[in-house]
Design a protein around this nucleic acid. Sequence first.
DNA 1: CGGGTCAGTTCAGTGAATGAACTAGGATGG
DNA 2: CCATCCTAGTTCATTCACTGAACTGACCCG
Lengths: 172, 172
Amino acid sequence: MGLGKNYEGQDCSLARSLELLGERWTLLIVRDALYGVRRYGDFLSHLDIPRAVLSQRLSALVDAGVMERRRYQESPPREEYVLTGKGKELWPPVLALAQWGERHMSAAGPRRVFRHVPCDAPIGAGATCSVCGAHVPAGEVEIWPGPGADLTREDPVSVALRGPHRMLEPLP
Amino acid sequence: MGLGKNYEGQDCSLARSLELLGERWTLLIVRDALYGVRRYGDFLSHLDIPRAVLSQRLSALVDAGVMERRRYQESPPREEYVLTGKGKELWPPVLALAQWGERHMSAAGPRRVFRHVPCDAPIGAGATCSVCGAHVPAGEVEIWPGPGADLTREDPVSVALRGPHRMLEPLP
DNA sequence: CGGGTCAGTTCAGTGAATGAACTAGGATGG
DNA sequence: CCATCCTAGTTCATTCACTGAACTGACCCG
């Protein structure tokens, strides 16, 4: 998507968001990051994204302050990408889009189920807990495979997500 | 975005949604439709979108059951595009993305303010009313210009949005 | 030294977006 | 009745972005 090139005339915060997030692949990268994916190679194998695009998108997310690139070992030097606070706040829109897709685009039932850990209760509309009713931050969410989950993928991230997993905890 | 071409390997409802909604311009068209825009020419002048792209996107939205194309006058024959129930349910994700943009991408303050009409109260996170706490459907929302609004645009939709407007009501 | 891994970059080919011009059905006005 | 205008598109050449494959470079292991 033409970064900064087009949506500029739009008098709308949605357009501001989409200049960054509306690019192909970008929201899927953020979703994976929320799940806990941190390494270049894991994004690559889980998303099946061209390497050049992944590099460009990660740089854009870092430049926008949504992710942070940091060295997690010195020898050999290895970088990881983690969400900043700004990035973690993308959890409600990502969930809202996923829930819409689940209701309207997914025939086989939910692929993933999200639970509020303190309440051990499912999460409903607007990222609120169905028991305590509070807005649930990403860190209090556990991801479970749902009935519509695809069990054929063999990349490390897909394999790790066959069991429950706390969101934002490193994966795999 | 490669419709049906790429995100297919993705085991995720978000990817299903993005195959349709992740294409350039599509969510902005949905936003305008939520505001009440219905006619080809109004989308065109408000969005500054190439005609060919608008035609393709509207067709895709109609094919996906998000919008409905219908004749609103016979002579001369004129078509309008209105959101279906499935389309109106995109209001929570659209709002969530716009709110994120407002918090993190908009320096000048909110461009638009949304109010829950029965309660006359602002709408908060998760498309819930800040007074009654209920989930607010798009039809109960009124749009007001906010402090960051751009008052220089002169297309009919921008002009109409300088005053308050009930969402989904025909615009302009 | 040879082979392997990780994290990228480079590059040619393809497909989509863009803007301008064109089309078509009907209304409007003199 | 002819010229012009309006709305809603389609067509087309150009530009741009995405894609997949190959390549680079830093480092480790045996």
